[in-house]
Amino acid sequence: MAEGLHSIQVNGMQFSYDLQSPLFFEFNLTVSAGSRCLLVGANGSGKTTLLRILAGKHMVGGKDVVRVLNRSAFHDTNLVCGGDLAYLGDSWSKSVGSAGELPLQGDFSAEHMIFGVEGVDPVRREKLIELLDINLQWRMHKVSDGQRRRVQICMGLLHPYKVLLLDEVTVDLDVVARMDLLEFFREESEQRGATIVYATHIFDGLETWATDLVYVQDGVLKKSEKLSELFELKSYPNLLSVVEHWLRHETKIEKKKPADAIKKSSPFDTSPFRSSRHMAYYR
């Protein structure tokens, strides 16, 4: 495989919070450089954990198991500190570069928070402030969740990245802000070659935005393909209908399982590469 062909490579990953119930076992995934990849699945399917592993926030055994930009996601701290890898989750605290944890609900102005991030291109900063319609006089302890989210997103995007991991970050945004932000991400991938992995349950407009789709079910990779080649889109009116069909099918299978079904033992239990809650770290 040529270097740089894929921005993200996961080879035989094993991970668990509970050693009796492995979440990922022999999990494999590749995400092409410059793609806009949707990560879909039901609640509890492992989407957030996968993004946090890719962001280097959880350790898995072996340096070559999870690689981002051909570097170890967990062991190479320069990925995050150097700005090549960025992660935006649902927390109201955001680690920005080496600035540490920044509380987004304290009595601070939006201007204080945004301009407190050092080493920023002022043109990019002004573009994001305008794009997200941020009033620099907002007091962070008084604004709405949506306004606070805009400041969080702005701060997380101030430094250009090569790989961006997004976990439900648009959930509090109105339609206009969300569509403008998605268009910004499109430009980032098309003009700068950035790779974006976006986990969401909101699919409006994503048929023409995304280039790839990854579907995870209970820690198992069910689909990973180009969106343009997704067969189900020929039978359903939109992406929302396709994902709804998948998740309803999951529910029917779960209901058919015996209530007293015993979980089969897994070779994960004796694997020397297993990970647990005690091996989870935060950058």
Rank of each mutant, 00 (worst) to 15 (best):
Q9V: 03
Q9T: 07
N11Y: 02
Q14A: 15
Y17V: 09
Y17E: 02
Q20A: 15
F25I: 10
T30G: 11
V31R: 07
S35I: 04
L38H: 09
G41F: 05
A42Q: 08
S45M: 11
G46K: 09
G46Y: 05
R52D: 02
I53D: 00
L54K: 01
K57S: 12
V60I: 06
V68F: 01
N70R: 04
N70I: 00
S72D: 13
H75F: 03
H75C: 01
L85M: 05
A86R: 07
G89M: 03
S91H: 05
K94H: 12
K94D: 13
G97M: 08
A99R: 11
G100D: 05
P103W: 00
P103S: 06
L104W: 01
Q105K: 06
D107I: 01
F108G: 05
M113I: 14
E118D: 09
E118L: 12
E118A: 13
G119T: 03
D121F: 07
P122N: 04
P122F: 06
R125A: 08
R125I: 05
E126D: 11
K127R: 13
I129P: 06
I129K: 11
E130F: 03
L131A: 07
L136N: 10
Q137M: 13
R139T: 07
M140N: 02
M140S: 04
K142S: 12
D145P: 00
G146D: 07
G146F: 08
R148D: 07
I153G: 04
I153L: 12
I153H: 04
G156W: 07
L157S: 03
P160F: 06
K162D: 09
L165C: 02
D167R: 08
E168L: 03
V169F: 12
V169D: 04
T170M: 08
D172E: 14
D172Q: 14
L181D: 01
R186P: 01
R192H: 13
V197E: 01
A199D: 14
T200E: 11
I202G: 10
D204N: 15
T208R: 15
W209G: 03
W209H: 15
T211Y: 06
V220M: 14
L221D: 04
E225G: 13
K226D: 10
S228Q: 12
E232L: 11
P237E: 09
H245T: 12
W246Y: 15
L247M: 15
K252V: 11
E254N: 13
P258V: 01
A259C: 02
A261K: 12
I262Y: 02
I262S: 12
K264T: 14
K264D: 15
K264F: 06
F268L: 00
D269V: 10
S275L: 07
S276G: 07
H278N: 10
Y281H: 12
